[in-house]
Amino acid sequence: MEWRARPVSLAWSNPVIRWWGLLSLVSAANIAVWFALYRQFHEQANGSLSNTSGIGLMLLLCAAYVFGCAFRSVLPRADVQRICLVDTWLSSVVVGRTVATVAEVCFAAQWAIVLYQLGTMTGAETTVTIAWIIVPLIVIAECFSWYAVLTTHYLCNAIENSIWAVVFFLVGIALCRLLPEFHGPVRWAFIVAIVGIAAFLAFLMTVDVPMYLNRWRANLAAGGTLLHPLEGLRDVSRRWVVTHDIAEWREEIAWMSLYFSMAVWSSLALCVGYSLEDQLPRYRTEPVIVSTSVTPAAQRTATIETAATPRN
């Protein structure tokens, strides 16, 4: 093990410590919500909830994301810089990146399952197609992430986050395709999700991706050299730098705060949404099909009666 610490105050007056405490608090609340959902769904299934069932699988995938993000909140680290807050082998990049990879693929799988559910229910082929390509794209993004971590190549971080942007742009398209298929609270839930995705994309393209591109250019200007992947693997396994200096963490705070809070909330929300499958048909906006053999006057009467009939 190789490490070094930069002595900075651990007092509550240190903004890094306050941020760390907030991350830990939010993560504890997220875990509590997950257990509440598990208990609720378990009781609904009369104690027969199986991990092979639909909601059981969704809860399992959500657990990987919730607990993975909690782990990364309690033991924050910045991969390429090799910095962390706690001096333990669990803060090593190889451990943290492995946890992140599993969690992020599971999160992508949640979105794929929910979109496939909604797409097949409504016959929306665009949504079903997008559901099938989400996970493969995120696996590719994870490959770029690992290469960036091993070699310290920030350009690959920028590519990774650009792929995430493409994925959620496609998710937004899938949700837009579903808007005409539903009314009431379901449609409003889709609108809220679309607005959230738009905000996420704006953050990625104006803050996150430019940050990595700037680091890449700065490294090039400084004549920095990249590590060979095998050399990088040894490095991420053995070296971590403990620092509580706000200057070291300033650029990480924004994306970590959003990632370990709002992204986790969306994972929990996907579980809830998936569990409501039986209630979704009542909010469908299926058109009334009128037989061509009916007279025009009867068609008009049927249309008026249909429009006057309230939906449940």
Score class of each variant (00 low, 15 high):
244 H>Y: 01
231 E>V: 05
262 M>Q: 09
223 G>R: 07
219 N>H: 04
246 I>R: 07
232 G>V: 01
253 I>G: 01
255 W>Q: 12
238 R>P: 03
257 S>A: 10
254 A>P: 03
220 L>Y: 08
238 R>T: 14
268 L>K: 00
256 M>N: 12
239 R>A: 06
228 H>V: 07
243 T>M: 02
241 V>E: 14
226 L>P: 14
261 S>T: 15
252 E>F: 13
229 P>T: 00
249 W>I: 00
222 A>W: 10
236 V>L: 04
245 D>W: 03
224 G>K: 13
252 E>K: 12
266 S>W: 13
218 A>L: 11
224 G>I: 00
263 A>L: 10
261 S>F: 13
239 R>C: 05
254 A>R: 14
238 R>N: 11
258 L>C: 12
240 W>L: 03
234 R>G: 08
248 E>T: 11
228 H>Q: 14
242 V>F: 01
260 F>G: 02
236 V>E: 01
252 E>Q: 15
234 R>S: 04
267 S>E: 01
235 D>Q: 08
244 H>I: 01
265 W>I: 10
226 L>F: 15
228 H>W: 11
239 R>K: 06
237 S>L: 04
256 M>T: 13
260 F>Q: 10
259 Y>A: 06
251 E>W: 07
255 W>A: 10
235 D>L: 09
248 E>R: 06
243 T>A: 03
265 W>A: 09
224 G>Y: 07
256 M>I: 11
267 S>T: 02
226 L>T: 15
224 G>P: 02
232 G>S: 01
245 D>G: 08
220 L>V: 15
258 L>T: 04
241 V>P: 03
